[in-house]
């Protein structure tokens, strides 16, 4: 029972979504199914949120490795939740001057807006910019000319890296017009629009077929690993 009911729900929803592409009458059913999922996922956040609180409180009380980070996480979580829910620092709008909570929670100047502008944004940007450093260390370690394929990869990387900078276009100044295709930027454009394009299409087609077959396995109840243990 524990496995049968979810399989029936998965199969029914999946087939409705497929059929809704072909039968006009069922078009609305497909979007209804999607809405149900969004509602369930939102409710499931309560599970996740409570688990997060419990785990971090436990880490702090046990003084486990890195418990200080758990304390920071907890404080950040609770403060953000509080200022967002209670709209701390939100001013009444012109349309509803007597209602303190009429303005949106992220109104400019509110506490949550402040958190977003001066905490969240710099932190996000920092994490993203770490990529520049990690790309450098990965390139240093991984790009080795071990075999002919790796040499081709290296040559391509060199051309594209140069072609994506000012130096790439600079070469044109020194090349005769009929040899301009040899400049890094022209070669980069060619690599991207021919080799890369063809490879990407092949990968995309393979992925699409993989998605179709994996989805079918789930719909037909062949793959049940995501359902956990239980009697059929």
């Amino acid at each position: 029972m524990k496995r049968t009911v979810p399989i029936v729900i998965a199969a029914a929803t999946g087939f409705v979504l497929i059929v809704s592409s072909f039968i006009p009458l069922t078009e609305e059913w497909g979007s209804a199914a999607m809405q149900w999922f969004n509602i369930l996922a939102a409710i499931a956040f309560v599970l996740g949120g409570s688990n997060l609180l419990r785990m971090n409180l436990q880490k702090i009380s046990d003084r486990r490795l890195g418990w200080g980070y758990a304390a920071v996480t907890l404080v950040a979580f609770l403060v953000t939740l509080f200022v967002g829910l209670f709209k701390v620092g939100v001013q009444p709008t012109e349309s509803f001057p007597t209602y303190a909570w009429a303005a949106p929670y992220n109104q400019e100047g509110s506490f949550l807006w402040w958190l977003f502008e001066y905490m969240y944004k710099p932190l996000q940007a920092t994490m993203f910019s770490l990529l520049a450093f990690f790309i450098a260390s990965a390139a240093f370690r991984a790009f080795r000319a071990k075999n002919p394929e790796a040499i081709a990869l290296l040559a391509t990387a060199f051309i594209v890296l140069m072609g994506r900078t000012y130096v790439g276009g600079l070469m044109r100044e020194f090349l005769p017009e009929r040899l301009e295709w040899l400049s890094f930027d022209a070669m980069t454009n060619y690599i991207m629009s021919v080799f890369n394009l063809a490879g990407m299409r092949a990968i995309t087609i393979g992925i699409a077929l993989g998605v179709a077959s994996t989805s079918l396995k789930v719909l037909l109840g062949v793959d049940r690993s995501y359902l956990g243990a239980g009697d059929d």
Binding site: A136, A145, A157, F158, T165, Y166
Partner: peptide, 24 residues
């Protein structure tokens, strides 16, 4: 921002070259 990109790419190329020299 293209200035930083130029130098960063040159550094990447230099690192790849050094990596390969060490490898060989």
């Amino acid at each position: 921002r293209m200035g930083p990109q130029l130098l960063a790419h040159l550094v990447l190329i230099a690192l790849i070259v050094i990596g390969n020299v060490i490898y060989f």
